[in-house]
Design a protein around this nucleic acid. Sequence first.
DNA 1: TCTCCTATGTATAAGCG
DNA 2: TCGCTTATACATAGGAG
Lengths: 143, 143
Amino acid sequence: MGRGKIEIKRIENSSNRQVTYSKRKNGILKKAKEISVLCDAQVSLIIFGASGKMHEYISPSTTLIDVLDRYQRASGKTLWDAKHENLSNEIDRLKKENDSMQIELRHLKGEDITSLNYKELMALEDALENGLSGVREKKAIFF
Amino acid sequence: MGRGKIEIKRIENSSNRQVTYSKRKNGILKKAKEISVLCDAQVSLIIFGASGKMHEYISPSTTLIDVLDRYQRASGKTLWDAKHENLSNEIDRLKKENDSMQIELRHLKGEDITSLNYKELMALEDALENGLSGVREKKAIFF
DNA sequence: TCTCCTATGTATAAGCG
DNA sequence: TCGCTTATACATAGGAG
């Protein structure tokens, strides 16, 4: 495009390269906007030039984080590193702990105990009697 | 470009939109490759079409994670740290839930009740008696 | 570097099979 | 829904200020 055809390979002349970068950067940003408007596409475009300056375009309908979330789901690749996996694991662990405590609490309150067998009911009764005697002992101190 | 000029606004005819998407997607991917080769640029381009299919281009000299790291440094915005914060908050919430259940469980077992006042002990006793009668009721069914 | 210019190469809208 | 064609609009290389 332009006065002469060019090969697609690194432009050796650095000022030429910079000029071309600047022009094409504008071009591609424009294309990104156009496709997202014309076709309802979610686009995330991030460019770093050789000089280190950044340029970006994210479709107005979304955020980079949304795009990256979709990216992870679509590609199966994981971006957030091991640190995040650890946090997720911790959350799973806590949720399980929560659930089992929830169940134990309900049992101690006499709820959801239809599924328990006789032995389990005995153990529950013991625990409750134990608790009760402890509580009554403490109560007695108030007199 | 093409037989007729078009306005840059959402293409209402959906099959037309899909065709245009497909063509322009190829075009922009090509441009992304070209600028990264010609100008030594680091490019990250992620596109989701309305159909949900993903297309991406990442400069061969880099990785998406590198680009995102640079993005965070250059823009000052946080990406996975935001995600990280969400996870941390979730963990805090679960831990608090856990702790209060832990305490309730201990109380029901007659532990750590020295700090309770008389009224609280009464409530605890009621709860335990309630639980106990529920359990005994169920136990009775076995005979 | 940036803007403007403009000849040319490319991308693509519309159509056809 | 594709692939192919082609006329046309657009992007841009090279150059000048």
